[in-house]
Design a protein around this nucleic acid. Sequence first.
DNA 1: CTCATCGGTAAGTAGCTACTAACCGTAAGT
DNA 2: ACTTACGGTTAGTAGCTACTTACCGATGAG
Lengths: 106, 106
Amino acid sequence: MTNAQRVFTALNDPTRRAVFERLRDGPRPVGEIAQGLPVTRPAVSQHLKVLKEAGLVDDRSEGTRRIYHIDPKGLGAMRAWLDQFWDGALTALATEIEKDTKKEPK
Amino acid sequence: MTNAQRVFTALNDPTRRAVFERLRDGPRPVGEIAQGLPVTRPAVSQHLKVLKEAGLVDDRSEGTRRIYHIDPKGLGAMRAWLDQFWDGALTALATEIEKDTKKEPK
DNA sequence: CTCATCGGTAAGTAGCTACTAACCGTAAGT
DNA sequence: ACTTACGGTTAGTAGCTACTTACCGATGAG
């Protein structure tokens, strides 16, 4: 399984995106993340595991709590994938427009 | 269902990404896209439908063929989502580093 | 040494999704 | 008009996945 694949899979689930977005404002322990979400805490743990494997989050221990924070590594991989795509897409689009212009020079 | 949700769902499936990436080199008819892929042509049609609903591809008729091409709209939505995230993630990370530095000034 | 809190893990299940096979409509060639 | 090529749609199914419940280890307070 490629790295980009893991990132996409991780961000595909709405609940998991909610978990991830909750970390945007700063690091949080698991319980605090789970609070307010419509799923149980174990579910959040499982989501965090997936996010971590995708390189989207990382954690550190602090007493009995585990503080999770965003890891830019995953976002970077995704952005790289997207950028590599962006150029090709725009190039193809430009070619398309050029062809259309030749066909219908108004 | 939000628009970003549709883009993520569309790009989540490996086969669907393969379909999408095949259009990076330029517009292609359905049959040509399906050729070489390990799935049948109807499956490709279904994938194209999902990609189209996500704003990632669009199509035009040319005789009995349907030529599919990349639609930048979907990629733009995804990039917007990512960028909006990017800043928050980096800000949080910077805050983190700052805190760690204060704790362990080496 | 208890006892409570925090959180990761295992097992089992309901719901979704990607796939194939069969079918149908449409456009172009003869 | 007949035939062929192209491709979208439907019905049915196998496999995956997000969820809950129950359990367990670890840390800190008293």
